[in-house]
């Protein structure tokens, strides 16, 4: 059955946008997003990101585990985005753990680096699991965050992604109703 989106569409979308702005400005910061009624297995925070940032002009890509009929129907109705089969064509790619199509995402061009995909990666939890040391713009010296279920090839891919600057993929990690941004400028090393 089709569920509703945000209870208060205008204010909750604005609150989600503001929180994501905060998260992106300070990589490694955990923010809590307003919770829409979400069709499983889409994480509430991933759904909030779709509602706040996506519309008919942002093609979406879903990984196999997320591309269930309830999720597709919900996204088509509330977000109005087209769902594409090729992650290269997607403005936002939603995936869980190891399913992320790291090397197949759009990285933009030197003239238009903003035309890259944003990866919304669902992880199992924050505060446990792999410890990551973050450095770069928005982080004063360095900060350590722990993320569980980020996928085995994530750190190695991020190093390659970092070297592409100004091109590259921005990442939003989500678990439950919480999100953390790891923009392309953030240097990640495993502790």
């Amino acid at each position: 059955m089709l569920r509703r989106g945000f209870a208060d569409p205008v204010h909750e979308a604005q609150a989600a946008f503001r929180a994501l702005l905060e998260a992106t400005a300070q990589p490694g910061t955990l923010v809590r997003l307003p919770e829409p009624e979400t069709p499983p297995p889409l994480a509430p925070a991933a759904a909030a990101i779709a509602l706040a940032l996506c519309d008919a002009e942002t093609p979406l890509w879903l990984s196999a585990a997320l591309a269930t009929e309830p999720v597709r129907t919900w996204l088509r109705f509330h977000v109005g985005s087209s769902l594409v089969a090729d992650p290269q064509a997607a403005a936002f790619a939603f995936a869980a753990g190891d399913e992320a199509p790291f090397e197949r995402l759009a990285i933009g061009t030197d003239e238009a680096p903003e035309r890259s995909s944003t990866l919304v990666l669902t992880v199992s939890a924050f505060g446990e699991g792999t410890a990551l040391r973050l450095a770069g713009p928005g982080v004063e010296t360095e900060t350590v965050v722990a993320v569980a279920g980020v996928g085995t090839s994530f750190v190695a891919w991020r190093a390659r992604n970092h070297a592409l600057y100004p091109r590259g993929v921005d990442v939003l990690l989500v678990a439950g109703d919480r999100a953390m941004a790891l923009p392309r400028t953030t240097l990640i090393r495993e502790v």
Binding site: L2, R3, R4, G5, P9, F77, H78
Partner: peptide, 8 residues
Amino acid sequence: WSRLRGPE
């Protein structure tokens, strides 16, 4: 019934 969207 429940509202899924709007009225808007």
